[in-house]
């Protein structure tokens, strides 16, 4: 029996998965905080305790994500693009296009169902079209990020929101609120604008069906719905979509053991 770890240190949240030959033994998520090294250590401890294992039991660890280089105990560092493709292919082998909505970037990649990536693209650096805008809006509206999706789906009359830029979105939201727009309608408008921006990013590398959505943003039902409406077809979301990169990292760790054998 081999045990492997996949650890994804994101700019906002860190995620980890522990696998054996058969499947997942547990996963863990926490805020990345300011000290990525410490977060990585804590992640490992949590995963080991969930699986009832010790450090010595682990055959291989693959790290990915924004802070991956600070996972000093990792055997290998892989880009999150490759990990995402691996993770999605294991859960949704029919997916050809993967949209990952993270805090800093939205990433779109095309894969073949075996976990190999053919092309990918990242959103621009101003955090436009990324999950950051949802955090900003949650703060303005004084709701929790995980409430946003449900609220948005309750909207009766979506506001036409004009910008997907996190900076302008804040002022636009505030000025809309002063026009007595409801939270629900505002959020629905924001989701629409964000989804349109994500879609145009995806169109830049071409969208092949089926389409899967992962990352923290895929937990937002309002955003998933908005993207479905814009694309006019269904979108697959795996269970625990925020874990996809960590899962992919763990699978890569396990596969490289098999190859070495």
């Amino acid at each position: 029996m081999v045990f492997v770890l996949g650890i994804d240190i994101g700019s906002a949240q860190s995620k980890g998965v522990i696998l054996d030959d058969q499947g997942s033994l547990g996963s863990f998520e926490c805020a990345s905080g300011g000290d990525f090294k410490l977060t990585a250590e804590r992640m490992r401890e949590e995963l080991l305790s969930r699986a009832g294992r010790s450090v010595d039991d682990i055959s291989r660890t693959v790290a990915t994500g924004y802070g991956s280089k600070l996972v000093i105990f990792a055997d290998e560092i892989k880009s999150d693009i490759v990990c995402l493709a691996k993770g999605v292919s294991s859960q949704l082998p029919t997916a050809r296009t993967v949209i990952d909505i993270g805090d800093l970037y939205t990433k779109v990649l095309r894969t073949d169902g075996n976990g190999s990536v053919h092309s990918f693209i990242l959103s621009g650096k101003c955090a436009g079209g990324s999950g950051r805008i949802l955090q900003v809006i949650a703060r303005v509206l004084q709701v929790r990020v995980d409430e946003i999706g449900e609220l948005s789906l309750k909207s009766k009359k979506r506001v036409e929101f004009n910008t997907g830029c996190a900076v302008f979105a804040e002022t636009e939201a505030i000025s809309r609120l002063s026009q007595e727009v409801t939270k629900e309608d505002l959020l629905a408008g924001l989701h629409r604008a964000l989804a349109a921006q994500i879609n145009s990013l995806a169109e830049r590398i071409g969208v092949e069906q089926e389409v899967a959505m992962v990352g923290g943003g895929a937990r937002d039902a309002g955003l998933v719905q908005a993207l479905k409406e814009i694309r006019g077809h269904d979108i697959l979301v795996p269970p625990n979509p925020y874990m996809t990169a960590a899962l992919g990292a763990a699978i890569i760790a396990r596969e490289s053991l098999t190859i070495q054998d």
Binding site: Y66, S79, I81, V82, D112, N114, V117, F120
Partner: peptide, 23 residues
């Protein structure tokens, strides 16, 4: 410019090239 972001992108791109070459 962000060196971290740029190099992450380069890493991902090179891994993509590797993946294409093997497939």
């Amino acid at each position: 410019y962000s060196e971290v972001d740029t190099r992450n992108k380069i890493d991902a791109f090179v891994e993509t090239l590797e993946s294409i070459q093997s497939n």
